[in-house]
Design a protein around this nucleic acid. Structure first.
Lengths: 193, 193
DNA sequence: GAAAACATGTAAGTAGTTACATGATTCG
DNA sequence: CGAATCATGTAACTACTTACATGTTTTC
């Protein structure tokens, strides 16, 4: 428990692992699966991060693991300790800045679109809009899974994050359309002159 | 020029450096400044990346630098070579997937909000909404700089990326409000029973 | 009986950060 | 004359990814 002092600040990804176990995911494999069908649109985490995180959290006394093989298939089941639960809640309720990072090559190219032709810029806007439309479809598929998690397990906030994701991409689709129409109108005007 | 073969794919950040020089930024310092007041909301790049990138691009024959001191203050001015310009345009027009990565601790905490109290969840939603509202204000300040870039230098697409950013955060603010109201209504109902 | 899914992990490499080091010039 | 800004760069570190290694069980 005093090991906590050695881990004054876990990374957000470590809290994801901890939180997923609190939500009932037992193994690294299950955590990875749940991440893929829930938070992957605003947080990714690979097996090469999950397994060392599990070791680190166990070392720090926040989780406890025991071998739980399926037949001859090795498997480790984890549960969260009291210290782990309180560490997670502390993180969840902490009044810290909430880091928000976006890396979007689409917007990057759009920023430089003056260096390309106007027709190329229109294409870019279409690509960006289409990308968000495809994302909306993906999110709506996941939404079904979130619905069943809400009814089966009683967790309703995964649904809220999905709704925010969908709202976000709908706004992008709409604004891309507006900008594209303005641009094509301007192209037509310039062309006629 | 055949050095290009050694750089089959530059990183997006390298293209940012290249593009910024094409937009008239001469030194690493100027590039950093422009990044800070334009693309930083969807792409960040630190001096520790810019200066090695400049060396690498010069080595690859895509840019050319010459010493251009201000008095005794050392400064290096870069220009883009023909090879550099064509490499940039190739990237800009390439029909590649446009990587989009989001890392949002706010949504992460919201995802796990079932593990906290409902009142805490309401607070989280407020924090996330406020964060987007603050971001909108920042973007609108930058927008003035983008306006003058549009009129002074004739570059209009930086403005388009800002509009997309604003649209995005407005959608978040709105949806956060909706979810929050739903939640408080549900709390009130449950409380009365 | 082959392919997909289950399951855990490591090694090597990439991309990026913060903090540091250094010094000149401008502005209030 | 001190603080902010101009200007370039490096070292050490962190976070994360891809690819690999290994073997089991289920499903078609």
């Amino acid at each position: 428990m005093t090991d906590l002092a050695k881990h004054p600040q876990l990374s957000p990804s470590a809290y994801v692992v901890l939180g997923m176990i609190l939500l009932g995911r037992r193994s690294g494999y299950e955590i990875k699966q749940t991440v893929e069908m829930s938070i992957r649109f605003f947080w990714t985490i690979s097996p090469a991060q999950i397994y060392p995180s599990l070791q680190m959290l166990e070392h720090g006394g926040l989780i406890r693991g025991k071998n739980d093989p399926r037949g001859r298939l090795p498997r480790k089941s984890f549960t969260v300790t009291r210290a782990g639960k309180s560490a997670f809640e502390q993180w969840l309720l902490a009044a810290e800045e909430l880091p928000f990072e976006l890396r979007d090559v689409g917007l990057l190219k759009l920023f430089f679109a003056d260096l390309a032709g106007a027709d190329q810029a229109v294409k870019l806007l279409e690509t960006i809009g289409n990308r968000s439309e495809a994302r909306i479809v993906q999110l709506q598929v996941i939404r079904r899974a979130a619905d069943s998690i809400a009814t089966d397990e009683g967790y309703s906030f995964p649904l809220a994050t999905l709704r925010l994701g969908i709202a976000y991409h709908k706004a992008i689709v709409e604004e891309c359309g507006i900008i594209r129409r303005e641009l094509t109108a301007r192209i037509r005007q310039t062309g006629r002159r």
